[in-house]
């Protein structure tokens, strides 16, 4: 039995074999973001409408006159994937209610990068989540504006060098901590919030499937490696995706109805140097600076652990307080 036959036997039970974002697109070698998008599509299946904000994923997949998309897809401006997604969802609902289209569940998905989610798109995302549209929003976070030439975003981590937070004699790269958008989404009362990384494909796919089942808004923050922007070797993409989780910089967890759960447990966190060393964007950092970042990683990780240990699901709380009697 060769490998392909093995794949035929086992893989379809785990992953849809069909490609909805097909090959031939223009992504860089070792692009983690397009891998994330591809896995997301496999989890979603064909019955979706995807609203894709401007960014790498839109540019590489839809260069006129060709397209890599095999599912309904609309490209929108930088700031409004969540708003357009809201419109699609509301439109479909109205048509369904009036009996103009078949009454079946078509999932609406908004996709944007870190700039389109965490900076310019945050207002639209907040609105969509607050209104409670039945849609999934996936942020493909590669930690800077890569499409326009590696400018910093609020997703860029402390110390990383970009073209607008350049490391030099005076500056040591990004001066601010990464914005915690999953936590902002939890604060919106979103029923399902998760972090994911394509280096853990089944974990990611399961989360997308879970999010699809949620009636109402859901949010997945997908960490994606960018060899071009991070100046890391392209063959390191999967490994870096695992290292970011194993160092505790980007833990994989989900929040269901307010209840936190770690989906990928790490017994002993690795030192963050293991993750930072292969990346050119961190090369200028001194041991002192790395220590400051290491402390922050522990601090954030412990905060998350506290939430996992201490917070209950909203439904449990309501039961405990006798709200449903």
């Amino acid at each position: 039995m060769n490998i392909i036959e093995n794949f035929d036997l086992y893989a379809p039970r785990l992953v849809d074999k069909k490609e909805y974002l097909c090959s031939g697109h223009r992504a860089c070698q070792g692009c983690g973001e397009v891998l994330g998008l591809r896995l997301m599509c496999k989890a979603l299946g064909p019955d979706v409408v995807i609203a894709n904000a401007t960014g790498c994923m839109e540019i590489i997949s839809s260069m006129y006159p060709s397209t890599a998309w095999e599912v309904p897809w609309i490209h929108v401006a930088f700031e409004n994937a969540a708003a357009v997604g809201s419109g699609v969802e509301a439109g479909l609902k109205a048509l369904r209610r009036k009996g103009k289209i078949a009454d079946r569940d078509v999932k609406v998905v908004g996709v944007a990068g870190d700039g389109g989610t965490m900076d310019i798109g945050l207002q639209a995302l907040s609105g969509a989540m607050e209104r409670g549209h039945d849609m999934l929003f996936v942020c493909l976070d590669n930690e800077a504006y890569m499409n326009t030439g590696i400018q910093r975003s609020s997703g860029t981590p402390m110390g990383a060098s970009t073209t607008t937070s350049p490391a030099g004699k005076v500056s040591s790269g990004q001066k601010t901590w990464k914005k915690n958008v999953p936590e902002i989404m939890v604060a919106h009362g979103v029923s399902y919030v998760a972090t994911a990384c394509p280096s853990y494909p089944l974990d990611f796919i399961n989360k997308v499937k879970k999010a699809m089942k949620v009636k109402g808004p859901s949010y997945i923050h997908c960490f994606t490696v960018c060899p071009t922007g991070w100046r890391s070797p392209s063959e390191m993409t999967i490994k870096l995706g695992r290292l970011v989780v194993e160092t505790g910089i980007f833990p994989l967890y989900e929040v269901e109805d307010g209840k936190y759960r770690m989906t990928v447990e790490v017994d002993q966190l690795r030192p963050i140097e293991d993750y930072m060393k292969p990346q050119g964007r961190y090369r200028h950092l001194t041991p002192d600076q790395i220590e400051i970042i290491q402390d922050r990683v522990y601090q954030e990780y412990n905060k998350l652990q506290d939430k996992i240990n201490g917070l209950h699901a909203w439904s449990d709380l309501q039961y405990e307080w006798g709200l449903f009697d």
Binding site: L122, N147, T148, G149, Q151, T163, T164, S165, P166, G168
Partner: peptide, 28 residues
């Protein structure tokens, strides 16, 4: 960030740092 004018933003990011009373902000 928006193409094709990022060179200006990047130049300002580098240069404003070297001017005593200069301020560069990359907005959201």
């Amino acid at each position: 960030p928006i193409t094709p004018q990022n060179e200006l933003t990047e130049y300002m990011a580098r240069s404003m740092d070297n001017i005593e009373d200069g301020t560069f902000v990359q907005a959201e």
